[in-house]
């Protein structure tokens, strides 16, 4: 099964592969969330939502419902 950002553990890294929805907000892409870029899960709020990420050097937080649509390959 395809992994998404939600499957990352704290401190784990992944490579963005693509999106499982047409409606990925442009703003997210503009902040560097693009296929091929690296993503690190920095911190989670209680109930693992929202997720505090480092994508391509940018630090940002997104909700679980958005993160579910960002497909990744988890790096060892």
């Amino acid at each position: 099964m395809t992994k998404t950002i939600v499957d990352l553990k704290r401190g784990q890294r992944g490579i963005i592969k693509g999106f499982s929805t047409e409606n990925i907000p442009l703003k997210l892409l503009e902040m560097g969330c693009l296929p091929g870029n690296e993503v690190v899960l920095v911190q989670t709020a209680p109930f693992r939502d929202p997720l505090y990420l480092n994508i391509n050097g940018s630090h940002l937080a997104i909700r679980k419902e958005t993160a579910m649509h960002i497909e990744i390959e988890i790096l060892p």
Partner: peptide, 11 residues
């Protein structure tokens, strides 16, 4: 409404 949420965590 389509909800999405992005916030930068600045230094």
């Amino acid at each position: 409404s389509k909800s999405y949420f992005v916030i930068e965590m600045p230094n």
